[in-house]
Amino acid sequence: MLGLLIAATAALWAARPGLGGRVKNITRAERPSDDYYLAHDHGGHVDHHVLYFGTDPTALEALRRADVLLLGNSRLMFAARPRVLDGFFEDRGLRYYVMGFGFREGDRFPLDIIEKFDLKPRLVIVNTDGFFQNEYSDFARSVMKHSAFSAWQFRTEAEAGHEFRRAMHLLVPNWIDLFGRPGFGWSRELVIYRSRTNGAWQLSPWEPGTTPVSGRNLAEPRLAPREIEAARTFKAALDRRGTSLVLTYVPTPRPLGGGPELFAQVLNVPLVAAHPAGLLSEDGDHLDESSAIAWSEAFVRQLRHVLP
């Protein structure tokens, strides 16, 4: 019976017009190079674990040597493209590392990593969108209760699941991954690899977007006192380490809060607000790859004026 069901699906998969043409992300996913490790897929989200517990020696070394850290949520992780950033920072003799996280992660978790590994970057660039909360995400809280041993387990499980799924879904699809879940932007499968040397995410595959990312008034009328306090606390922690702070903003139709201009005024730090025209998103939240490249180019054009 099970064999029949699988055979019937495989036949339908191969023969049915429209269905046969669709290929699952997991079977198409390709690690860009040996420099990348698996950060997220259905088998597990191990991105937080790897950096928090320093389970990847190469990534940890790159993090320690970075002169510039870029922090923020998943929107920054989609937007920061190494093909633009590599050349820009190299020309200035700087090493950078994109140390943002998914799960709407705010300021506390990356700050913990900075303090835990005694990182001393010269500059930290923060995407203000939902960042200054003086909070951990629920996911980060659960990760912090783990150990290096469990981080290793999570990573091993994720890698094993990833390879198993790549083989299994050549025969049968996961219907939810294939067609999406109504009401959920990123309900389709998401496979993310992360660079050991610069921390950037690479989605594989990364579909072109269709939803325009509209403009947004960066000068929000006011900030919540809690956000201001969180931002000041964060800056004070960087000051103690001798690190400068620059703010930025990745355009999104659904901001999580935090007006960049006001934060820049309150903290008296430069703001790099790049918003090129024609940005697109697949899920209405994150930039697609070509838009991310466009944003990164606009970002570095402005950044050169504020680099210390």
Partner: peptide
């Protein structure tokens, strides 16, 4: 039971989520 079990295994491999 065997038929139901086969259906459930099929459900597991095609409908699981994170």
């Amino acid at each position: 039971k065997a038929l139901l079990a086969a259906g459930m295994v099929y459900g597991i491999v095609t409908l699981y989520t994170s």
